[in-house]
């Protein structure tokens, strides 16, 4: 795993790490010294608590009595967990492909219109800079029963939609995620596109390829490792959409957007620690498996 991870990091950071990647042996020690502080931080704030979480998933709420896999069984039998896990899986399954496609499409467009590219780049990045709280206000104004979106729909004779109170909420959430992350992913794609030599496109043109064939045969293979990176980052960012969901709809939103994070939040408030830890450990295992698969699949050596 460390090898594939290394390759992807090296590729992802190609531009910035060119000098250091070629480092000599003596630089290994220096690297360790520089890495030590952030590694200590990560250990203290992430690794240690995580290890404790896994330990607690096998103990009772007070963390004293060993209960084995009881916590896991109880989580898997729990209806709320099943709903939340299904929703989260569905959310990820819909939003990641949609995001990858949308952001890649925009990246290609932005590259196509060179002189205006910069303006577009900036405007697509803006949503990242808007604080969640402001977004939430905007969303409430937009998607409230008597909000802006419904006003516009009414103009076209469409009956008002209760966006946050029906399964439409799921799509509002998807939209939020896309709106927020497209810019970031677009920048990643642009970096990946820069890594493909202009000569390859020209060679393909001379070989007789049309625009679509060039995309399939040159652009896509050239973006393989970028795709892995973007997919993983998008997956992890997908879990952040909870902030918006929570602030717009509270602890118990419409069933269609009841996500794992809602559940975790509620269990936490109820001090249901062993179930919480068991569920967290499972989520973590699933995520790790997905990440490894993605890495394996997209970093096949050239």
């Amino acid at each position: 795993m460390s090898k594939t991870l290394k390759t992807i990091l090296q590729r992802g950071l190609k531009s910035s790490s060119n000098a250091t990647a070629k480092g000599k042996r003596g630089e290994g020690f220096a690297a360790l010294v520089f890495l030590a502080p952030s590694f200590a931080g990560i250990s203290l704030f992430f690794l240690a608590p995580f290890v404790d979480t896994v330990r607690r998933s096998f103990f009772d709420a007070l963390g004293i009595k060993f209960i084995g896999l009881d916590g896991y069984v109880s989580v898997l039998k729990n209806n709320a967990f099943r709903l939340a896990a299904a929703n989260t899986a569905k959310f990820v399954a819909v939003c990641i492909p949609a995001l990858l496609a949308a952001s890649l499409g925009i990246a290609l467009l932005v590259r196509g219109i060179r002189p205006w590219g910069k303006v577009f780049k900036t405007s697509y990045l803006l949503p990242m800079a808007v604080p969640v709280a402001s977004i939430v206000l905007l969303w409430q104004a937009l998607f409230h029963k008597h909000g802006l979106a419904n006003t516009v729909l009414a103009r076209f004779g469409v009956l008002p939609v209760d966006f946050m109170g029906t399964s439409a909420a799921f799509w509002v959430l998807i939209f939020t995620y896309l709106w927020k992350n497209t810019g970031y992913d677009m920048v990643l794609w642009l970096a990946g596109l820069d890594g493909i030599s202009q000569n390859l496109y020209e060679a393909a043109k001379v070989d007789g390829a049309n625009a679509w064939q060039i995309f399939v045969n040159i652009t896509m293979p050239g973006l393989a490792s970028t795709t892995g990176l973007v997919a993983i980052l998008s997956l992890l960012n997908g879990f952040k959409v909870f902030r918006e969901a929570y602030l717009v709809a509270g602890s118990y939103p419409h069933d269609s957007i009841y996500l794992l994070q809602h559940l975790f939040n509620n269990w936490y408030q109820n001090l249901d620690i062993s179930r919480l830890c068991a569920a967290a450990a499972m989520l973590c295992a699933v995520l790790l498996a997905i990440i490894l698969l993605v890495l394996r699949f997209f970093t096949e050596e050239v």
Binding site: N199, L200, E202, A203, A204, V206, D207, N217
Partner: peptide
Amino acid sequence: EAKDRDIAMVFQNYALYPHMSVYKNMAFA
């Protein structure tokens, strides 16, 4: 368009398709 000109070009840096085998590079066109 280039694709309709029936011309073959050898580039200075060769511009071989990096993810294709030699066979596929040659068979591509």
